[in-house]
């Protein structure tokens, strides 16, 4: 399997405060990877560095491309639609996506929107938090890219919506694409993960397969994740 993401010696500071340093990470194609860590650990920052939305130091390659514009064409990020005013309707947002992303698959979006019960005629201002997240997920997964970055897709939404979103991720994930999902609630996503990456102390504390945790360590992902914080140290596990 080839690498979809290769990060080498990545560092990022904001307001002179170190957020990430010496980050090395490689992800292979076709996986669902959990990006775990406490609030403020740097999960969102790592995703923003991958998309080029944040400017750090170090090397980032997505599908072999390091140039930001090309990298963006390989990555679909779950951005929260802040560029649209509340008067916009969901269908108008979909049209915007269809216009600027040549890899946007409208039929795929329609199928997901139907599954997630998204009403395209509604204005953004009329959407609940859960419904907005469903729109974001459908828009993000409707693009045909190599790497999907889902930033805390389950925060603040009810369990039924969570289950539907998880089902949609499994159902519409292209076989050769990789999905990186960040979250600090491990239980929600643990069953669908192939690997986990834990961000802690400004770096990658561990990158390990879900099977290795269960088979070799005899632990559930959630227990393993919590043990890292109880031990207070790095796990030194690397894939």
């Amino acid at each position: 399997m080839s690498n979809v993401l290769a990060i080498k010696d990545l560092a990022y500071k904001q307001n002179r405060k170190t957020i990430l340093s010496n980050v090395d990470l490689e992800l292979t194609t076709g996986k669902i990877v959990g990006l775990l860590g406490e609030n403020g650990a740097g999960k969102t920052t790592l995703m923003r560095l991958i998309t080029g939305s944040a400017k750090g130091k170090g090397a980032i390659e997505v599908s072999g491309d390091s140039e930001i514009a090309k990298r963006k064409s390989h990555v679909s990020f779950s951005e929260q639609l802040h560029g649209f005013s509340n008067g916009y309707k969901v269908d108008q947002v979909v049209h915007f996506y269809e216009t600027i992303y040549p890899d946007f698959d409208h039929a795929r979006y329609d199928a997901m929107a139907k599954f997630l019960q998204v009403d395209g005629t509604k204005k953004l201002s009329a959407l609940s938090k859960g419904m907005k997240e469903k729109v974001v997920i459908a828009l993000t997964l409707a693009r045909q890219t190599d790497l999907y970055l889902l930033d805390e897709p389950f925060s603040g939404i009810d369990s039924m919506s969570r289950k539907r979103i998880i089902s949609s991720i499994l159902q519409w994930k292209p076989d050769d694409a990789t999905i990186l999902i960040s979250d600090h609630y491990v239980t929600e996503i643990a069953p669908i993960l192939d690997e986990i990456v834990i961000v802690k102390d400004h770096g990658i504390a561990t990158h390990i397969g879900a099977d290795a945790i269960r088979d070799e360590k005899g632990m559930e992902i959630e227990d393993y994740y919590e043990s890292l914080y109880e031990d207070g140290g790095d796990a030194d596990d690397e894939i």
């Binding site: 080029g52 514009a69 090309k70 963006k72 064409s73 951005e79 639609l81 560029g83 915007f96």
Partner: peptide, 16 residues
């Protein structure tokens, strides 16, 4: 100015 600092626009795969 909003277009420069919103991911909605800046994520478009195109040169700066």
């Amino acid at each position: 100015e909003q277009a420069f600092t919103r991911d909605t626009f800046r994520l478009a795969p195109i040169s700066d």
